[in-house]
Write a protein that binds this DNA or RNA. Structure first.
Lengths: 213, 213
DNA sequence: AATCTTATTGATCGATTGATCAATAACGGC
DNA sequence: GCCGTTATTGATCAATCGATCAATAAGATT
């Protein structure tokens, strides 16, 4: 009787409600894409009137932009924390490639692709996309430079190589978004490609103990 | 006075009008993205009432799908024709990489990215995207296999390598869509990556006479 | 010249969107 | 217990979208 009936939502502290809205937007983005972030969608998920979402956000564009940044930067921070605990640059790079190609990351890839498209009409989002790309490139560049310093890699332009690796990962993931079959040993082929770029020996980036189909 | 006034459009043969509509949709897609293909946008470009566009198309989704296929397949056909005139697989692959990374192709890349996003909600488009990806992969696989047969390349899985190269190109181009600066010698780095994958000697895919910044 | 076919119009409908705002009610301070 | 702040509501507006269809008129056929 009252299951679909909507009562007045309990009054909460602004900070808490703002968090709920951010989290709802995040969930929607991962499940249905950034384009499904609407005032009504987010409000329904929180169990609140649409006007309240607008009350906590300057506009929808900003909510989309901050949601994108939240998803992508959190993943970067988590990955960086893992890399920090690894000794060799070779191991870091191998782990990085293996992790970023994992199929469980398809939802994040979809967010990236959405962001590329929507960024053309949402300037605030476009700025966030560029920032996050820079952050990811910086993380990769750090690994490459560490490898050069350790004598594991050999490249004249670590920055460009980092950009290339990032682009390759994005492309392969976007491809998997539409067509996940047909490609065997994604990790192996990518590892060989990166080996060629960083001047590492063939097979030196091959993850040994990881699962590979 | 009468510049913005809309007179009744001259009556044309169905085939001719259909072509005009297709071409208008194509232009809009390249200039503003697949998402800007609307009944009213296309109609305005042709100089015709919106209802006429609907009259020539089952629905907008189909127009978007066919426009995507038209743009992408035409480019593939043109590239294939050029490749057919080249003797060595090494030269074909080098030319292919160089051509597909050209910045003048940004508009086509934007169409691809749009298609990946919209394909999640437009099943007809999703089918076309998969078809075109298959076609491009087949073209690349042909080059790789020719190189293997000629003893220029060495790979156990030409199909997978073709997928990987395609994904890399897409990713690098999508990246350039948002951030075109910061990367030096895109062609050089990609060439090295591909050399690593196909087992070609370092520098053997380097385009000699081409322009590189 | 009369008639038929159909290319073309544009008003119209229902959905969906972001945004706005007066009204309401819950909570904290006094 | 009273009052003021403000979290919350939901109706509302203007845009934009795809789709539909009766009305119109241009060209072909006879």
């Amino acid at each position: 009787m009252s299951s679909t009936q909507r009562k007045r939502a309990v009054r909460k502290a602004p900070g808490e409600r703002a968090s709920e809205i951010s989290e709802a937007a995040r969930t929607i983005a991962l499940e249905q894409g950034l384009g499904s972030i609407t005032l009504r969608n987010v409000a329904a998920r929180v169990g609140v009137a649409s006007g309240l979402v607008a009350h906590y956000q300057p506009n929808v564009e900003a909510l989309v932009a901050s949601t994108f940044t939240g998803i992508v930067s959190a993943e970067a921070a988590e990955l960086q924390a893992t890399l920090d605990g690894m000794p060799s640059a070779r191991g870091q790079l191998a782990y990085l490639l293996d992790t970023l190609l994992d199929s469980s990351r398809l939802d994040v890839t979809a967010v990236w692709v959405d962001a590329w498209t929507m960024g053309r009409r949402n300037e605030a989002l476009a700025v966030c996309v560029r920032d996050q790309m820079d952050a990811w490139q910086a993380m990769l560049q750090g690994v490459v430079e560490a490898g050069i310093a350790a004598g594991e890699f050999e490249t004249s332009d670590a920055a460009s190589v980092a950009w290339q690796i990032l682009g390759m990962i994005d492309g392969l993931n976007a491809q998997a978004l539409v067509r996940w079959d047909g490609v065997n040993d994604r990790g192996t082929h990518l590892a060989r490609a990166v080996e060629g770029m960083v001047g590492a020996a063939r097979g030196s980036l091959q993850q040994l103990g990881s699962s590979q189909g």
